[in-house]
């Protein structure tokens, strides 16, 4: 047969592809093992995402950062821990991130209860993180960040800015006090907490 015909060319190419697939058995075992390891990790993360709702904070909701202070939910008098009834499943906290702090600078929330943070930036990029917890989100100007978490351990926590936001970035933090359920209820009865 003519070696330049398309049939022989295709045949030799097919032969090369088959040859490509022939690899040493150790290599083959390693490929299986490596793929299985990666697959295992992806499956675990998928189970977490689908059944336990363990997803990173994603939330498409835009806002005009330049006019936050003029009204709406991020006006100064609306900020902080929102009023709640004992039957509420979620307690909402609204914060404005601005150079150089999260406002209001001090908040008190209960432990073992779902806390939903809604945050917006007044100026540049900020990042909110409470160390040793999974309360973390970027705050992008023009967007509202929403993240929900539960604090299992009462105590005083710093809420730190973890994205460079200017020369005062080091100083950008606020205080979060997490009270045990009993302390929270007592405080509520004293009328201190909304």
């Amino acid at each position: 047969m003519n070696p330049n015909s398309w049939i022989s060319k295709t045949r030799s190419e097919l032969g090369l592809i088959l040859q490509d697939m022939q690899i040493e058995h150790l290599e083959k075992n390693w490929i299986y093992l490596a793929t299985a390891m990666i697959g295992f990790m992806v499956v675990i993360l998928s189970i977490g995402a689908v059944f336990l709702h363990l997803n990173p904070p994603s939330h498409w909701e835009t806002i005009d950062s330049a006019s936050l202070h003029l009204g709406g939910e991020f006006a100064e008098d609306k900020l902080g821990v929102q009023p709640s009834k004992p039957s509420d499943v979620i307690i909402q906290v609204k914060l404005v991130a601005a150079r150089y702090g999260f406002f209001p600078r001090e908040i008190v929330v209960p432990a073992d209860k779902k806390i939903q943070f809604r945050m917006a930036s007044l100026d540049v990029l900020h990042g909110a993180h409470i160390p040793m917890t999974n309360m973390s989100t970027m705050i992008v100007p023009g967007h509202i960040s929403e993240v929900t978490t539960v604090f299992p351990k009462p105590g005083e926590y710093p809420l730190l800015c973890n994205e460079y936001c200017g020369m005062g970035h080091d100083h950008m933090w606020s205080k979060v006090t997490v009270l045990s359920q009993n302390d929270w209820d007592a405080r509520k009865n004293e009328g201190k907490q909304p």
Binding site: E27, A34, A49, H59, T137, M138, E146
Partner: peptide, 30 residues
């Protein structure tokens, strides 16, 4: 991952790809 402006599905898809790209590094190690 921690940004508000991208959705859960996009982040999940990029996560799967991120794990996939560790395969060539595992092959290289071998």
């Amino acid at each position: 991952y921690m940004d508000p402006e991208q959705g859960t599905i996009a982040k999940f898809w990029h996560m799967v790809g991120t794990f996939a790209v560790s395969l060539p590094t595992l092959l290289t190690g071998f």
